[in-house]
Design a protein around this nucleic acid. Structure first.
Lengths: 387, 387
DNA sequence: TTCATTTAGTTCACGTTGTAGACTAAATAT
DNA sequence: ATATTTAGTCTACAACGTGAACTAAATGAA
């Protein structure tokens, strides 16, 4: 149900509106903000004053426009008070990243480490060490950490990682195993990478991010918001049916996308022992490797056709190993998309490789906390006033 | 961007909250509303007073609770002021329905008519006559018509019906061809039927409505809201790929769901000349007809598997001709769903037949106008105060 | 029958918040 | 120097929700 509005929530909302406008619209003067939000200059002045006091905004000095009239003083997001922590567990590394409110990276670390088959407890202990390091550094910088989000690859619901095909884990409450002084939230890597791409990459308001790892996941962004379905399990692109009579899949079905374009299938077909080996083979012109990628690309094209028909996408970003394999995958995939989709909807969706690569997930994870602060700045201001 | 809140929009929002609470929570006293919304009794009293004056709420007399204390006066939605018009163009009929704010049917008419191949102008002229009749009757009842929505089967965007496979139409601005004294909005039949099922049938907060007509469309409801994708073209279930090498499809691809479970495919495989003929054959135990339905059911199961994996559905409602074919389709379809989905997500989604049948679309169309009034009652109240 | 008790709804002085316009500040143009 | 233009602040004011006191209307016990 929509919440009733009272005076305090009216104020909270307006603070949010001003902060949001600044975060989207770069440096803005109070006058410009009044114009943008529809609030009066005096109200905007008060709101901006509170946000400045709270350390969420900062003045950048006079805006020298060279035009007539008194130049306005521009305000921008301030990175001086609030920070957020993004964490990621991947097959072969652990990663941490601290962002300030402006989206600036304040700390980043990555520990290369083969997590395949390691027990959750052990991996999370190591991650906790890394996170503590990040927190110490953040406090040293005088920043207050507003929250943390942990990215794992596999379906997540209600704080539980149901399965992680790359790690061999099942039903792990990963965030609860971390002992940190701030609350940690758990989410799917594909979803968070999609958000990373939205906020820091070339994602527009609407696109699908495809994460090719051992399994294949996807994060869907519609209207600038993540779509996660009824129970948060949306985006299982890997088990979209590509050929009903195809190879059996670990999900119990057969002919899922994963059986054609999952890492295992790719390496087997390409006769390579690892992704780097596959890439090496590709760059020296190995035909088996190239044909393996082409086949995977065609399967991906079929699965994406279904996705586009259901979800009305006009942009698809390929991430994970697909980013590196992009030159060999994208041709066959977009050919399938064109022939199957142009009939009904004019132009087929645009395919592109992720620009952020492996950083997308931690950026999205930390970014989610940043955006939560931007969406609800009131508590941070109240705390200041108490002091 | 989120809009800034001012005194008038605060009031508008609170009116909306109270009205929404009444529309969901049946008859409620002012005291109960205060409890529910978190507003004080005095505020609720004022808001309810305005809504009563505006004719959107009505008092039902004292709530005889038999308990101690003064009994509260319950208020309910009032059907006495505002009405809405739902229109539908189907292959073999035109339909009109008028609902009041309470969801009560005030007028309904259906003109049986074979629209296959008729020119848009002609069909819409007939529909306009039907709609005018409905409007006259509505005015006679003293109701003010807040708006109208027209349902057509085929993808719709920006007021244009891009293609209607059942009618043979292309790129028709159907709503603009109607000359009515109220604005008419155009939307997809599957989407509107999904909303009809949500508001008047057994749709819960999350489900997929599948509309089996000549083409196969779908309407997705998530969290009580219609999901329509970036450009409003989501839900093209008919062109989800079921078998990449399958029969060619009018969309340019091959092996789409429509080539297995579309009306044409069904009738050819079942050796029947029409849907009634197919049903007759089925009920007398014709094996070709039964096998045709089973095959369609399996194909539907495959397409729905992809949809569930992408969208995280736990409930699917079959509408259109699939409602009548349900007994012969549902077994094979849900068998495919179970074997392909139980591995990853425990229980497979629940399949059911639409309870509203052919009424879903007009109900959803008119219901959408009703819900718009409930979501924004302020203009109706202002108009009263002017008088 | 009477009166205490309980719950519903209204009234009104008050607090919070945004508004409008006057006013001050700081730049450019003439 | 002075007019003009735009930015930002200040202040009286209005809109709206709040909260406590108050009235209304029921039940239950003496």
């Amino acid at each position: 149900m929509t919440q009733a509005v009272r005076h305090d929530s009216m104020r909270a909302r307006n603070l949010e509106v001003v902060l949001g406008a600044v975060s989207r619209g770069g440096p803005l003067t109070r006058a410009a903000l009044a114009e943008l939000t529809g609030l009066t200059k005096s109200t905007v002045s008060k709101l901006v004053g509170d946000l400045l006091d709270g350390g969420l905004l900062a003045e950048t000095g006079p805006a020298r426009a060279g035009e007539r009239g008194r130049p306005g003083v521009e305000v921008v997001l301030s990175g001086a008070r609030v920070a957020s922590l993004g964490l990621e567990i991947n097959v072969d590394y652990l990663a941490v990243r601290v962002l300030d409110l402006t989206g600036g990276v304040r700390f980043a670390a990555r520990r290369e480490r083969d997590n395949r088959g390691s027990r959750p407890k052990k991996v999370l202990a190591e991650l906790q060490a890394l996170a503590s390091e990040a927190l110490t550094e953040t406090h040293r910088l005088g920043l207050e950490v507003a929250g943390a989000v942990l990215a794992v690859s596999g379906p997540v619901g209600d704080g539980v990682l149901f399965s992680a095909p790359n790690l061999g884990w099942q039903d792990v409450r990963a965030a609860d195993l971390l002992r940190l002084p701030i609350p940690v939230e758990l989410d799917n890597e594909a979803n968070l990478a999609a958000l990373g791409e939205l906020w820091f990459g070339d994602g527009e308001r609407d696109f699908l991010y495809v994460s090719g790892e051992v399994g294949i996941g996807a994060g869907l962004v519609v209207n600038g918001t993540l779509f996660s379905g009824a129970r948060g399990l949306a985006g299982e692109l890997g088990h979209v049916v590509v050929a009903p009579g195809g190879p059996p899949c670990r999900c119990g079905g057969s002919g899922c996308l994963e059986t054609f374009a999952g890492q295992e299938a790719l390496l087997t077909a390409g006769r390579a022992s690892s992704v780097p080996a596959l890439l090496a083979a590709l760059s020296r012109g190995d035909t088996a490797a190239a044909e393996a990628c082409a086949a995977a690309g065609r399967a991906l094209g079929v699965a994406l056709t279904s996705a586009v028909n259901l979800l009305d996408l006009d942009r698809i970003v390929l991430g994970g190993v697909f980013t590196q394999l992009y030159p060999w995958l994208s041709g066959p995939a977009s050919e399938v998309l064109s022939t199957r989709l142009t009939g009904l909807r004019g132009a087929p969706p645009v395919l592109s490789a992720s620009r952020l690569g492996g950083d997308a997930a931690t950026l999205g994870a930390a970014g989610r906390v940043v955006h939560r602060v931007l969406a609800e700045p009131a508590p941070f201001l109240a705390r200041v006033q108490e002091a």
